[in-house]
Design a protein around this nucleic acid. Structure first.
Lengths: 207, 207
DNA sequence: ATGAAAAGCGAGCGAATGCTCACATTATAT
DNA sequence: ATATAATGTGAGCATTCGCTCGCTTTTCAT
């Protein structure tokens, strides 16, 4: 195997300037997605908005897809941070308290950046690289499952996997639809009502 | 207002041959979407697969979007047919029987053409014309709401709109996730279990 | 049979897009 | 100060795509 010649293949940012470039690119991508939608997000435009040349863009991102993937990842990491925290925080709580917390957190998480969330949900074709970003879903599934397992005595007899699937799907869907339909405007009152109802739904199901 | 000259603006198919052309185009679009995904569905390719020239395509469909919209519409109409039928069939049934039926129907409806369903859900950017195809959702919402209204005595006190929103979101999500995650393979056994559980979830919530 | 309207054809235009490459600038090590 | 690597530039290539338009073929009414 010959050493690859001192041309950089493409990739990592080591110096500070380049890290700033990478950040600017991801940030610009997110802003364009929110402001103008996925279709308008061309690599040339992204570079322009980032104040960087297309060439530089391609030093760090092998394709447009990779850029969008980075945005999705950043957003999902934000959400996962909150969700993970909530799940550990909730570990010792009884089911009713725990579910209420998780429902609230789910709605809050979807409200972090609603406009971006909407674009990601509605406009990004889940194709190529973007396909398996649903790994996050699997992680949530796992975490929730192990919580339920630890609280099994409070529950009726159910197949744990089925119960987990049902709970996660339900909470996710209601949070998602709440944010997408209610769009920007969403009175705190309404959020509370929906959280209450969803909690009732799920807790009633588990016991 | 001058009469528009005898050039056809663009649109309607009156003769039989042209109706066949339109059908072939929609069918070809659906097939390409399923086989190769949204990105590969160019107008040239659609026309080619339909055995028709691009020119003819543009006689009946003003844009690529219109073609995709036609496919979505066809698919949604199929689903809505089933859902509407189920909802009238269920009108006189008590809540538990009704919910069970609706859950089953929801899953079945999503399984009509799973591959197409997946592409429509995952790859089609909801933009431009494609935005308000969610009118179907509103119709379902309305239908379910009026069913619940007629059965109010069997229910605890709830805000009808909220309850409807919760029920529809939940059933929709579980049916959707079931079909998308389970993909093609989905044992009848599993479907039955999920239908049972979902029914329990929703019925328990309403009463 | 004939003319007109309907339907169909397909080469190719113009615009946009993703991406490359030859080169310029900046940082780092010696 | 100088050499080397890291980073940045942007004109423009190659390709694709949506779509038009001048024209031919088919259908239909008379």
């Amino acid at each position: 195997m010959a050493r690859q010649p001192p041309t950089k293949p493409r990739k990592n940012a080591s110096q500070e300037r380049s890290r700033a470039t990478v950040d600017a690119l991801v940030e610009a991508t997110a802003r364009i997605l929110v402001r103008d939608g996925f279709e308008k997000a061309s690599t040339n435009r992204i570079a322009e908005v980032a104040g960087v040349s297309v060439g530089s863009l391609y030093q760090y991102f092998p394709s447009k897809e990779a850029l969008v993937a980075a945005v999705i990842d950043r957003h999902n990491e934000e959400i996962m941070g909150i969700v993970r925290a909530a799940l550990t925080e909730v570990a010792d709580l009884p089911i009713d308290k725990a579910v209420r917390k998780l429902v609230t957190v789910a709605i809050d998480a979807h409200r972090i950046n609603p406009k971006l969330h909407r674009v990601l949900a509605e406009q990004i074709p889940r194709t190529g690289q973007l396909r398996d970003v649903e790994a996050y879903n699997r992680e949530i599934q796992t975490l929730v499952r192990s919580y339920l397992e630890s609280r099994r005595k409070e529950m009726r007899k159910v197949d744990l996997d089925v119960a987990t699937f049902i709970c996660v799907s339900t909470i996710e869907a209601i949070a998602h639809n709440t944010v997408l339909h209610g769009a920007e405007m969403l009175s705190e009152k309404m959020v509370k009502v929906l959280a209450d109802e969803t909690t009732r739904l799920v807790v009633g199901y588990l016991r």
